[in-house]
Design a protein around this nucleic acid. Structure first.
Lengths: 350, 350
DNA sequence: AGAGCTTCCGTGTCCGTGCACGATTTTTTC
DNA sequence: GAAAAAATCGTGCACGGACACGGAAGCTCT
């Protein structure tokens, strides 16, 4: 594999009897080359197996590629906080490969803030964009702009039904619900399960928990059809209300020991669970938020199912970088991340 | 964060009134610089916040760094096969950053083949080496050579008690045994467990399973002290013998439903288990070998605990690359990988 | 004081590619 | 068929750094 003799653009020039300027024009499809010369150059490139020297190229053009990352504001301890931390994973290995990343944030409950953040992205003229589709139509409107300008973009977390994206990195949602059900009930005779849900803001269009819930219910139908499934709704911004809701539910259902929540906010109900211990209880939630992992350590939560959002971001950035610098397309479009099972016994080195 | 004006070596030269040649000598500690000039240059570098342009550097010196990877031969379907596949993960993002990887293989049961592979590595004059310590003294002898020549090296999988390595990437072994026990027995009243072991070749010095077993036993002592633990030994090269050993064991112990194996070869006993079904059985093994994952899919194995050997290799190579190219030391020396829990429900996208 | 040595430093070339500019050839136009 | 326009091509510098080479200055020694 040791490529001793590096073929350069000059070798091609000499071989074809043309100049490196012409070869360069061919390489970049910049026109102003006769059909005949073009063919000769292409032939020589094939024969000699020419590969451009990226360093020389990057050095000469001096241009830094900008990868824009468009995500909901990463308030500390939220899911998006995890995603943002994935940006740092690339700065060493790839920023050093001539590109720069810039984070654009918006309020995930305010569609206007999304629109203006999108406008800011366009203004920055990035070579690629990583984004999570929160507002469906607004996202489509934005990606259409990307298409027009030839800006490639990758989705993470979830994915709309459009088709122009370069790649997608996310969790198989339906399967994650299935896995979740197995972790919650396997090996036990479960007669009743409680699903805790969050009332969605009407602006929030894209909701991954829908698919998870359906995977969960499919599993239960197959493995424990007689199991009763209750739902309660909580408001994330009203801690007292959460306690109240749960209090009244368990007053009426003291026999329910299995609890599940399909978004990343299981930590919201942890205070209640801590103050109402139940040795038979089993709780499954999603995503490795700090607060969730804390609850895993002390045993309040039994299992967390995690999707490595940092990896999703890292891989998306790398895919865009390879596209921008080397012009490569990813092998596949859709990349489903592994679903990690976290328990108190393997939470430490995560 | 947009570094508009890139500071170059020429800026430093102009600022200090010296020439770029001198600045270069300072940057590389190549001597032939007066104390005074040295100080002035260092000061200017600080003030202006100079950072070398890696592309220009790589281009100018033209030298490709070689990262040697020294591992047991990766016969298809073995643990080392997984590790080797991690090499490919770096070729896109990092080979494009000016380095080349080369795999050196040896027979893990033949210490002489290890020695000669080590000699081959030295001869190749690599900028860094990734290796797994199989033979203790021979490994130490080799790493001492690395030290003498200033070649940095990283351990993966396990780690000797020496101290000269750049970084280590591996699984927390004791914890993995602990986790294993929990996955095997949690939520059930287990009265008896079978550990299947492989007789070690006498040359094989480094044995990660020892620590795993001790973690396992610690868990059992804490959580199920009255549980009986049996051991049987099998010979990997004698399939008929394996069947025989298990046959006779289960003839005498029909009440044992929980089986564990601390190395990657649970697949060796899968044929027997398949032909002797037991609905109450629970089996836990290690590592995502193809055959193991197959057994997970069909339910013969309940859980696999995996350590992402590809990631270990990738991270080790990246650490060495950063050291070779940028001169950076990794933030920590010891990196414990997460222990992944695989069940039939999350094996697909692994 | 001049030869011989160190020590220190500047100049210049090269790495491989991008691109602007101008030169040359071919084609079009009248 | 000459002038004008278009198509095609070559030259040369720039990017930022590595390193060889040779020159200047200071020192020691006879």
């Amino acid at each position: 594999m040791v490529q001793n003799e590096k073929i350069t653009i000059n070798d091609i020039a000499r071989r074809t009897g043309l100049s490196k300027g012409t070869v360069d024009r061919v390489l970049h499809n910049r026109g102003e080359v006769s059909r005949k010369s073009y063919a000769r150059v292409m032939e020589a490139i094939q024969e000699l197996g020419y590969e451009p020297n990226i360093f020389a190229s990057l050095l000469a053009k001096g241009k830094k590629h900008l990868i824009a990352i468009l995500l909901p504001a990463h308030e500390s301890g939220t899911f998006w906080d995890l995603a943002v931390s994935g940006i740092a994973l690339t700065t060493d290995s790839v920023t050093s490969a001539g590109l720069e990343t810039k984070l654009f944030e918006y309020d995930q409950y305010d569609i206007d803030s999304f629109r203006s953040a999108g406008a800011a992205v366009l203004e920055a003229e990035p070579s690629g964009v990583v984004l999570a589709p929160m507002f469906q139509e607004a996202t489509t409107a934005l990606t259409e702009q990307f298409q027009e300008r030839g800006i490639p973009y990758c989705f993470i977390d979830s994915r709309p039904d459009t088709n122009g994206y370069l790649a997608y990195f996310g969790m198989p949602l339906h399967k994650s619900g299935y896995l979740c059900a197995d972790q919650l009930t396997r090996g036990q005779d479960v007669s009743s399960v409680l699903i805790i849900r969050v009332r969605r803001d009407r602006y929030q269009q894209s909701d991954p928990t829908v698919n998870r819930r359906s995977g969960f219910l499919d599993y239960m139908l197959e493995h424990a059809p007689e199991c009763k499934i209750d739902n309660v709704f909580i408001d994330p911004n009203d801690p007292a209300g959460i306690d109240q809701v749960l209090e009244s539910f368990f007053a009426g259902h003291p026999d329910v020991h299995h609890i599940v929540m399909f978004n990343s906010r299981i930590h919201l109900v942890v205070p209640f669970l801590r103050s109402h211990p139940d040795p038979e209880r089993r709780v499954v939630g999603f995503d490795n938020l700090k607060a969730n992992m804390e609850a895993l350590r002390d045993g309040t939560v039994s299992v967390l199912i995690c999707q490595r959002p940092e990896e999703q971001v890292r891989l998306a950035i790398e895919a865009l970088a390879e596209h921008a610098i080397l012009g490569k397309l990813p092998a596949r479009k859709d990349h489903f991340m592994h679903m990690d099972i976290l328990t108190r016994f393997n939470v430490e080195d995560y």
